[in-house]
Design a protein around this nucleic acid. Structure first.
Length: 803
DNA sequence: AGCACGCCGACT
DNA sequence: GTCGGCGTGCTC
């Protein structure tokens, strides 16, 4: 009898190896690697979801095998390539196989475990469990259930008064909407209208609506009930009375925006040269990595599109990743316009079901081109001919939780399988990539000119130590405000970058110096004017603004430092006619909020777009002639060796937003460090010089790309526990490293406490440590044991954030 | 995460 | 002697 090796979804994930299960005779045809199965697990025998990893003839397991309970897929959801990719990913990122497999799939295919209790005997009069039964999903035990309720459930279960069952429901994969059909004629509704009690407001409202729908009555027209004021309960009552017929109807979610087909633009000679090199590599099926370094506006996208076209012409597919933030309608329309009907889009704005639909279209081969954010690196395309990573320096390509993968590494790995080239594109490549191009591991392609003779913007650095400042508004120089005013008069648009959201940075008592801090984190709270509250940007804690100092009760408490909200208010006071749009986490958090703001600004419904980093990325507004950076220094002062690189990239990018069409753009950068090289070289738009200078610094400090880095971080509710553990880890790890490896720390993280967890960390810098990876795998396993309960360990290879 | 096994204390 | 506390370790 066949034996399936199954990777199981165990919540605690204490294991990383497959478990063997017997395949019942009638399921052997379906039991192939990559299909999802339900298997009994543990003494309880509760079913869990898993993936068949391999099918073998005989098990090495000495005990009695349990049988596979159910096979969930007719065709594997993960093919051989994906399974191999998962294995590599798990090793490369120190994560569990199961989490890698899950990450590759749309969440609609992930198991959704539910615990539900059923009463066998009536509850006591005031039993707290009654509250759970009264909810709509009667008897469902929520994951975040209060401990005392859970204890009560356990108690009753032991007394035999209730049972708990465990269900695995697949999250809805097919979008279903409740649709109501009229089941009576208009006349019959009229009749009912007469007989219903006069105070049955809801029923009358419904009947009036049904009568008004008369033209539809009698035919099969279905309609969605969206009558204002009508409650869902009334509808279900109406169904019971036979007034209406309800049914679940599958709805296709493809918000098909009308796209006009576009034709390829003629390439400039530089673009043509890059394109020719790339397609040569495609034709020869080489997995070359190209670093396409092109200044903003030099037309990288046109090269991507032509390369993708070349793949399609050869019967292959194309995968293009862009940062989430630049996956705007502008970008999507551009790709869809070029390849109408062939494009699937994957981004976080899609619902679970929409994502699944797009994933299916890709998997079935109905879409040959995929545009998406980070996780689209796992798009189930076959016969990939070209892969593109736009804005390759963006840190959002690195996933911050398990598995901590970098989309770039995934693409490069897949390129080996498909023998196809990868294009990494950026105006300001990451130092890692640029250095690899230097060493010849990547092939460097350059686009140095903007087509249509658009000039590079003129960049001015304003020295805030000497600049005229507007009285009382210490963050705005007179020069910048004059420039804003000038654009306002000319009916041109401006973009302002301020790297801090909220209203004020912190709230301080002028008498005793007390700063109001988050009760859960070691960080001061940020003042938000719109909600009139103090917020913690790390844990989300929110509290009212106190009228007196909590320490000395003085009324003399003030806020310091400017955030987007305050600057918005200040500019509004200075330029009363200006229409200002604010774009930051607070205004874009809701679904579609980001798009809405971009659309509004693009449609000239505002004169000034003021926002955090996100205004710098991927936006293309032709009428913006002024870009202002209010505080270029905030990102510089961070204790992170990448601070200069980030500042340079941000300033260069935001500068590129100015003057893209026929109008010359101007950039003003306010700074207290005007002589800093990152600011100087960004204003000169000189990437090469920055690269040389920064490489020198990295070499001296022994930082990437000269060294590999690994961050090991431990957190615990109690500080002394976290400290003890990190030293214990260091003592264990150090002897396994060579002399050449450098261990920084242990140190407390910059913000030591977040959400009442204390964080301590170690950074290992190394060039070649053959034993390190194995040791870290062991460490992860050791940390899973019960003696280490309460600790969380994080092993992050090439971390983006060192703080 | 569950669930059982097992090794110690306070009771019929 | 045994009932049950929850520390420890396994789950095919």
């Amino acid at each position: 009898m066949a034996v399936a090796q199954v990777i199981i979804d165990i919540p605690a994930q204490q294991t990383n190896r497959p478990f063997d299960y017997e395949v019942p005779e009638n399921l052997t045809a379906l039991a192939v690697p990559g299909v999802r199965v339900l298997v009994p697990f543990g003494r309880s025998g509760h079913l869990r979801q898993g993936f068949i990893w391999r099918v073998v003839d005989k098990s090495d397991f000495a005990g009695q095998l349990k049988p596979v309970a159910r096979i969930l897929d007719l065709d594997p959801v993960l093919n051989q390539e994906m399974l191999a990719l998962a294995k590599w990913l798990a090793q490369d990122t120190f994560s569990f196989l199961i989490s890698c497999l899950q990450t590759m799939l749309p969440s609609a295919l992930r198991a959704n475990y539910q615990r539900r209790f059923h009463l066998l005997a009536p509850l006591a009069a005031n039993d707290p469990l009654q509250a759970l039964l009264d909810r709509e999903d009667s008897g469902l035990i929520p994951d975040n259930i209060a401990a005392d309720l859970l204890a009560e459930i356990k108690r009753l279960e032991q007394k035999g008064q209730l049972t708990i069952d465990y269900q695995i429901s697949q999250k809805t994969k097919i979008k279903q909407e409740k649709v109501f059909k009229t089941s009576l004629t208009s006349d019959q509704y009229q009749g009912l209208r007469q007989s219903v009690r006069a105070n049955a407001k809801q029923q009358l409202l419904l009947l009036d609506f049904l009568i008004a729908q008369a033209p539809f009555v009698g035919n099969s027209a279905t309609w969605l009930v969206k009558v204002p004021g009508l409650k869902a309960a009334t509808l279900s009552q109406a169904v019971k009375k036979g007034w209406l017929a309800a049914e679940e109807k599958e709805v296709y979610r493809q918000p098909l925006t009308e796209v006009t087909a576009t034709t390829p633009k003629k390439l400039t000679s530089e673009q043509q040269a890059a394109f020719t090199t790339i397609i040569k590599s495609m034709d020869q099926a080489e997995h070359t990595t190209f670093l396409l370094e092109g200044v903003t506006g030099s037309g990288k996208t046109e090269v991507y599109l032509d390369a993708m076209q070349h793949a399609l012409a050869a019967g292959q597919t194309a995968l293009m990743l862009v940062p989430e933030i630049s996956l705007t309608p502008q970008m999507v329309e551009r790709v869809q316009g070029r390849f109408p009907g062939q494009v699937a889009v994957l981004h976080s704005g899609l619902s679970v079901g929409e994502r699944y639909d797009e994933w299916r279209r890709i998997e079935r081969g109905e879409a040959q081109v995929v545009v998406g954010a980070r996780s689209a690196a796992f798009a189930p395309l076959k016969k990939i001919g070209i892969m593109i990573l736009d804005e390759e320096h963006e840190s959002s390509y690195k996933q911050e939780d398990m598995p901590r993968y970098h989309a770039r590494d995934v693409l490069l790995k897949r390129a080996e399988t498909y023998h196809c080239p990868v294009i990494l594109g950026s105006a300001t490549p990451s130092l890692e990539s640029r250095a690899r191009a230097q060493k010849g591991r990547y092939q460097l392609l350059r686009l140095t000119k903007r087509p249509n003779t658009i000039q590079m913007p003129q960049v001015n650095v304003i020295d805030m130590r000497q600049a005229d400042k507007i009285a009382g508004k210490s963050d705005l120089s007179k020069q910048l405000v004059d420039q804003l005013n000038l654009r306002l008069e000319r009916h041109e648009q401006s973009v302002l970058l301020l790297n801090r959201r909220g209203y004020a940075n912190f709230v301080l008592c002028r008498d005793c110096g007390h700063v109001i801090k988050c009760p859960n984190c070691d960080i001061s709270l940020t003042l938000h004017r719109d909600t009139n509250s103090l917020k913690c940007h790390y844990c989300g804690h929110q509290e009212a603004i106190p009228s007196a100092c909590p320490q000395c009760h003085s009324q003399n408490i003030r806020s310091y430092g400017s955030g987007t909200q305050k600057v918005e208010q200040e500019i509004q006071e200075l330029l009363p006619t200006a229409r200002i749009l604010r774009m930051d986490v607070d205004t874009t958090a809701r679904k579609g909020g980001h798009e809405r703001i971009i659309k509004q600004f693009g449609a000239h419904q505002a004169d000034i777009l003021l926002g955090t980093q996100m205004v710098a990325k991927g936006l293309d507004f032709p009428d913006v002639t002024l870009v202002g950076v209010i505080n270029a220094d905030t990102s510089l002062s961070l204790p992170d060796f990448r601070a200069s690189e980030r500042t340079f990239q941000l300033l260069t990018q935001v500068s590129g937003r100015a003057g893209r069409a026929d109008k010359q753009g101007e950039v003003f950068i306010q700074t207290y460090n005007p002589e800093n090289y990152a600011i100087q070289l960004a204003s000169a738009q000189n990437y090469e010089a920055f690269y040389q200078k920064e490489m020198g610094i990295r070499h001296q400090g022994g930082y990437p790309p000269y060294y590999y880095t690994i961050l090991i971080s431990v957190n615990h509710r109690q500080e002394d526990q976290a400290v003890q553990k990190i030293y214990q880890i260091q003592n264990w790890l150090q002897p396994q490293l060579s002399e050449a490896a450098v261990v920084l720390g242990p140190t407390a993280r910059m913000i030591t406490r977040i959400n009442n967890q204390y964080y301590y960390q170690l950074i290992i810098k190394y060039k070649s440590e053959p034993r390190l990876l194995k040791a870290l795998q062991t460490l992860i396993m050791k940390m899973q044991s019960k003696t280490n309960r309460g600790f969380q360990l994080r092993v992050d290879r090439e971390p983006m954030q060192f703080m």
